[in-house]
Design a protein around this nucleic acid. Sequence first.
RNA 1: GGGGAGGUGGCUGAGCGGCUGAAAGCACCGGCUUGCUAAGCCGGCGUACCUUUAUAGGUACCGGGGGUUCGAAUCCCCCCCUCUCCGCCA
Length: 426
Amino acid sequence: MIDLTKLVEDFENTKAALVAKRVDPASIDELRDLVLLRRKLTTEKQEKQTALNQKSKEVGAKYKEGKKAEGDALKAEVAGIKDALASVEAEYDEVEKKLDYIHLTTANVPLPDTPRGESADDNKLIKTHGYNEADYAGRTFTPHWEIAENLGLLDMERGAKISGSMFALYRGRGAKLLRALVQFALKLNDGKYEEIMPPHFVRTDTFTGTGHLPKMADDAYAIERDGLWAIPTAEVALTGLYGGEILDASTLPKCMMGYTVCFRREAGAAGSETRGLQRLHEFHKVELVKICLPEQSESEHEKMLADCERSIELLELPYRVIDLCTGDLGFHAARTRDIEVYAPGTKKWLEVSSVGIFTDYQSRRLNIRYRKKEGGTAFVHFLNGSGLATPRVFAAILEHNLQEDGSVVVPKVLREFYGADVIEPL
RNA sequence: GGGGAGGUGGCUGAGCGGCUGAAAGCACCGGCUUGCUAAGCCGGCGUACCUUUAUAGGUACCGGGGGUUCGAAUCCCCCCCUCUCCGCCA
């Protein structure tokens, strides 16, 4: 949630920043008006309550003194105050309900350095690594779904049979390669990040706290009977971990990584760009999450980006880093860099990691604070990024490492986990 | 699924209709004592919000939500959570 005090105090700037993120200007105005109205009603409510509290004390005093008649007279007075209080409260509750809803559905404010822009077309290319256009000219590349089928790594038909489309079924050497990727990513970040295996289902309040509800409800799998949601990323579980707690500043930054399955409904995404492993309802991912002090978040972001790049680099895949513009930024992010891997068979840059700063947007919702040296508490900052999202990386490896004879070379760093150097043709 | 116990401040833990924002202890901060350490003594110490130039005042908060009452941490109802015994399963 955004800081409402700041919204009111620094209205024009905050509004401009939110509008750049394509938030409806009218709803920002409405939010501000509601905050001011709530303040006014708070004052009124408190005045009534003060009067009531005082009278109640007097009633008690009269009875104690044995002046029953006077006490009874006061009680009648109190009744009038109570009616007035009730009507103010009714109005207040209505205002608060509206306010809360808009507040929960208002996106995070982007950081000042975020490039301005309307859409993905305005994103800024920061760097390209290991990619030469000439390398691909005049050559034909096979899409990963064909390679995987030829080698028997995937069984998409049977996957669809048991679960529907956009569910992958890895088998044999494919399953092994997938597992190798996960082990590689975990080992690579071991020591820097604490490995956590969280539950894959979270409560509604956790899911609201990370910013996924109420806005992203349609994209998540819900287990209504038990009031649980299937996590779309380990971020949800790891970010919710310290909900309601006050952390010791000396323990920050707290770095965690979680290997989980990620569940996404991908509502409305069916059909386009879903061939093979490009877009799935269920995939395996190693996610990195950091909790840090506000002044640490930008430098920790750089480090995390480097950590995420490192796994792609070690897998020897060409990639580029994109600074997302305000218009393309995710709902709860304040700044995001995407890592995209080039997949020559799919002929596309595939997003494999999204490394973001979420400032205090999530900690405010989850009420996660740290104790300040000078006294008092403040909200921590959250960062997260994909240490390794398996399906697209898996796809890119196949497309890059396919040999003339139909075999696929296993990247050097995966061999100790995969147990062989090459995936031979059947 | 059935029975029992319980959810109070950073932590432990009292309170069970008005004198309680909440005893006591620990932790923390300031002062005194002190060769160092340890200890002792005195004082301070919750959060959010509203009004206020400052100072100050007020309101809410004892798992969450309703209710009873002039007045609720305290009584009643519903829900959630934790622990525990039994059952079931592994």
